[in-house]
Simulated scan of single mutants.
Amino acid sequence: MARDLLGLRRRAGAVLGSVVCGVLGVALLAASAGAGATLAVVAGALLLYAASGTWAAGLRAMAEQPVPGGLLPGRLGRQVTAHLVVPGVLALVSGVLGLGTAVLLGGGPGWRTVVLVVGVVAVALGARVWVAGASTVPIALFTPVPGPTGDLSMVSVAAWYLRGWLLVGAAAWAVARFGPVVGVVCVGLARLLVRAAVRRAERE
């Protein structure tokens, strides 16, 4: 965690910009959720996911090591948890400020909106861990896939690179359409994403 904090100090401008982006994302989420504006909710979630890329720089650096976590003592799961502290705190700050901004804009968030925001934030951070755990495209995705317009393997490759964005967008859409129950499910999904990333890194 100390390395993550040092990295934030060295990139203070980028971190400040990412927090502003996160606040705008949460504010858009909260203000749009009650109005049933699904596309606006998805847009807010994607803004939040974009912001989390800066927050998770330390996690990404660890995952790109030849042996993830091998340079430090302790189990990999504990190291991942430690690297999630900084993104978690910045997400909390962005969430509180974003909800406050939504209140000032007249979209006072009820408990349903808070559950939506928590679910989307959890998925965004979980997706960052999941994506960081695999930075090389699987060779199998380059296998030719016949389609009506030709080889579709590049579509699979593009989807792999965009998997985090697609997952967060889909989660935000589901929460906006089906309510707070899906927000709770998203928290569980985030935990599964983190566990899957840790297990994959341990196998490597």
Rank of each mutant, 00 (worst) to 15 (best):
R10D: 05
G22M: 08
P144M: 12
A176Y: 02
L46P: 00
P87R: 08
L84F: 08
L193T: 05
V121F: 04
V129N: 05
I139E: 15
A57H: 10
L5G: 01
R199W: 00
T143F: 02
S52N: 06
V67N: 06
G22I: 10
G58C: 01
G108P: 11
G107A: 06
A91M: 07
A158D: 12
L48E: 01
G95A: 04
L125F: 07
G69C: 11
Y49V: 07
V80D: 02
L6F: 10
F142V: 11
V42L: 04
L99M: 04
L152M: 12
L6N: 10
G77W: 01
G188F: 04
V137Q: 06
L92C: 15
T101H: 02
V85S: 02
Q65W: 04
L39E: 00
A63N: 04
V85W: 14
A172H: 06
F178A: 06
G147A: 15
V145P: 01
V120K: 04
A134C: 06
V121H: 03
S135K: 12
G25T: 04
A37H: 11
G179S: 09
A61R: 08
A31S: 13
P146W: 14
T54Q: 14
R191I: 15
A170S: 14
L76Q: 12
F178L: 15
M62S: 07
G108M: 13
R3Q: 14
G108D: 12
V137Y: 09
G133E: 07
A172S: 09
R199G: 08
Y161C: 13
V123T: 01
G95V: 01
W173A: 15
L16M: 07
L125R: 08
V187N: 11
R200I: 06
L24K: 00
A172Q: 02
G17V: 09
Y49P: 03
V123I: 13
G77H: 01
S18M: 10
A63P: 11
G13A: 00
A159W: 00
G169K: 07
G44N: 08
G98K: 03
A159L: 10
G74E: 01
L59T: 05
V194C: 09
G150P: 12
V89M: 14
V20D: 00
P87H: 03
V145D: 10
L97I: 10
L84D: 07
Q65D: 15
L48Q: 09
V26I: 11
V131K: 07
A176S: 13
A50L: 13
A12W: 15
S18V: 01
L8N: 02
L72M: 03
S32R: 00
A91P: 04
A82M: 03
A50Q: 14
A176G: 05
A201Q: 12
G150C: 05
G34N: 06
V23I: 15
L90Y: 08
R60C: 02
R78C: 08
L72V: 14
A57Y: 03
L166A: 11
G77C: 02
A57L: 08
V184G: 13
V114G: 01
G70N: 13
V175Y: 06
A33Y: 15
A171I: 03
L92T: 11
G98Y: 01
R60A: 13
